[in-house]
Computed example of a mutant assay.
Amino acid sequence: MTATRRIWVTRASPGAEATARRLAARGWTPLVDPLLVVRGLSPAIDLAGVAALAFTSVNGVAAFARACPDRTRRVFAVGDRTAQAARAAGFAEVASADGDVAALAALIVGEAAGLEGAVLHSGALDPAGDLLGPLAAAGLTARRLALYETIPRAPAAATLAVLDALEAVLLHSPRAARVLAALVADHPAPRLRALCLSAAVAAPLAGLEAAGALGPVAVAPRPTETDLLDLLDLLDR
């Protein structure tokens, strides 16, 4: 590959910059232009009766760490990077589901016998998946705490000008995919390939290739960024 083959990174900062570093290490040229921006909220945090914390993103860990000094609860993380962020924030007992929200729910349910209290899911105002439903179905007490929200962000004019010349766009969330779907309705990019973290992320893009608004859509075999970036290896095949 050549250094001019650019990959559009649409996730919010600071995750976008971390993804860009991984792309550069693989020899790709990242174009960081997020479709979402994170805005912190300021809710009251009450950990009375809470036995464990559940995080579905690095942003959730960061938001909780800023808002609350308590690091005594067990932590269940959706994936390894979120788990690493929790450990770096000072949590000692951290378990990773190494998957998606469904895998995280299964991990927590599997540890239910060791939980004496509620599970607090700290994260986005508009979460990408339903964590509380499976936990409640398993008889666990769980509640959600919104610590931040993601706001749609218009890409730069320079990005719009080269949409159809980019090698691919990386999409980490259904929210970003919805923003992209609306964008290409007005700025078609039939050669822009969309690489998605999961089937849920790809769902808002259904029909766009057939309509000529977007190129082929591919889904990572597992919902991890490593699997997502591995899709880049298939671009030349």
Rank of each mutant, 00 (worst) to 15 (best):
1 M>Y: 00
3 A>H: 12
4 T>A: 14
4 T>K: 11
4 T>N: 14
8 W>F: 12
9 V>Q: 07
10 T>Y: 03
13 S>A: 14
16 A>V: 05
16 A>G: 11
16 A>P: 00
16 A>K: 00
18 A>V: 15
20 A>N: 07
22 R>P: 02
28 W>F: 12
30 P>S: 04
30 P>M: 05
31 L>N: 00
34 P>R: 03
41 L>Q: 08
41 L>C: 01
41 L>Y: 03
42 S>N: 08
42 S>G: 00
43 P>I: 08
43 P>T: 04
45 I>C: 07
46 D>E: 13
47 L>A: 10
50 V>Q: 11
51 A>T: 14
51 A>H: 14
52 A>K: 12
54 A>E: 11
56 T>E: 08
58 V>W: 04
58 V>N: 12
59 N>V: 07
61 V>D: 11
62 A>V: 06
63 A>P: 06
64 F>T: 05
66 R>L: 03
68 C>L: 05
68 C>T: 02
69 P>W: 06
73 R>W: 00
74 R>L: 12
75 V>T: 12
76 F>L: 06
81 R>F: 06
82 T>V: 04
85 A>C: 01
85 A>K: 01
86 A>V: 01
86 A>N: 02
88 A>H: 09
94 V>C: 04
98 D>A: 15
104 L>P: 06
108 I>W: 10
109 V>M: 07
109 V>P: 06
109 V>A: 15
111 E>S: 14
112 A>N: 09
114 G>C: 12
115 L>H: 06
117 G>F: 00
118 A>V: 01
119 V>Y: 01
120 L>Y: 01
122 S>W: 05
122 S>G: 15
125 L>G: 08
127 P>E: 08
127 P>T: 10
133 G>Y: 01
133 G>V: 00
135 L>K: 12
137 A>H: 13
138 A>W: 05
143 R>K: 11
143 R>T: 08
143 R>A: 11
146 A>C: 14
149 E>F: 05
150 T>N: 04
151 I>D: 13
151 I>V: 15
157 A>V: 07
167 E>H: 12
170 L>M: 05
172 H>V: 08
172 H>K: 00
175 R>K: 14
176 A>Y: 07
179 V>K: 03
182 A>E: 15
184 V>N: 09
186 D>T: 06
186 D>N: 11
193 R>T: 10
193 R>L: 01
194 A>T: 01
197 L>K: 00
198 S>A: 13
199 A>T: 10
201 V>R: 01
205 L>H: 03
207 G>V: 06
209 E>Y: 03
209 E>H: 14
210 A>H: 01
212 G>F: 02
215 G>V: 02
215 G>C: 05
217 V>M: 11
219 V>G: 03
222 R>H: 12
227 D>T: 00
231 L>F: 11
232 L>M: 11
235 L>C: 08
236 D>Y: 09
237 R>P: 14
